[in-house]
């Protein structure tokens, strides 16, 4: 099987098993919405200040929901020795990484597709910039989050309390991505022109590129038995 087909099979496997139970997607979605509701109690949604914190609210809600999914991503493979089966599927650990990356990315995009419109509704936020750019920045930001998150999730899987370890080791590394994503999202929402946030897009893209390549390369070492 070609490299591409191997990845496709693994992604399909993850999607099929998730859509049978929808356990993880449901809890991620509810968690994302819940975070938003808690935010709207914390910051009065009627006030003008909310316009300023709105990009931050989006990304915090997405990160919190995302970490639930990332925790499960490899943890779920531990029952019935599924992980051994996964390793036996392919001689190349990079395939496992890319497969998990794409399936996690798809889960996140589903969550975003549902929760972001609701977020805009709840905060009564009117988009001033272009929707296309907003979608691009959110997709690229999610990519970076998932690229490093999937990698660290595989690393944390090997310990008994991976749910405790993963957020502590993931969030410090995410800081540059979060800064860039929140800034770019804020500028686009406010109707800023491309030049005003292209810097931030540059940071997001380089973060995505660096951590996808480095993770893909180092994944061989993570999966060693």
């Amino acid at each position: 099987m070609s490299y591409y087909n191997q990845i496709r099979v693994l992604v399909w496997k993850d999607l099929a098993s998730e859509f049978r139970s929808k356990e993880m997607l449901n809890s991620m979605l509810i968690f994302a919405l819940l975070t938003t509701v808690i935010f709207s109690f914390a910051f009065d949604p009627e006030a003008d200040t909310v316009k300023k914190v709105f990009p931050g609210v989006i990304w915090v809600a997405l990160c919190f929901a995302g970490i639930l999914g990332l925790n499960r991503s490899f943890q779920g493979e531990k029952s019935n020795d599924c992980f051994m089966g996964l390793l036996l599927c392919t001689p190349d650990p990079g395939v496992v990484y890319l497969g998990k990356l794409f399936s996690n990315l798809i889960f996140m995009l589903i969550i975003e597709l549902i929760s972001l419109p609701i977020l805009f509704l709840l905060f009564d936020y009117r988009l001033q910039g272009s929707l296309g750019w907003l979608v691009l920045v959110i997709a690229l930001g999610t990519w970076g989050f998932i690229a490093i998150g999937t990698f660290l999730s595989a690393l944390a899987m090997n310990t008994k309390n991976s749910e405790l370890l993963l957020p502590v080791i993931l969030f410090p590394l995410l800081i540059p991505l979060l800064i860039a994503a929140v800034k770019a999202t804020g500028l686009i929402l406010g109707g800023g022109d491309f030049a005003s946030w292209s810097n931030w897009l540059g940071i997001i893209c380089s973060f995505d590129l660096i951590f996808t390549v480095v993770s893909w390369f180092l994944f061989d070492y993570v999966l060693e038995v």
Binding site: F151, V214, S215
Partner: peptide
Amino acid sequence: IIGFIDVPIVWFSI
């Protein structure tokens, strides 16, 4: 290794 690679990106973004 991963942590050290992150540091320059942190610096630029901040």
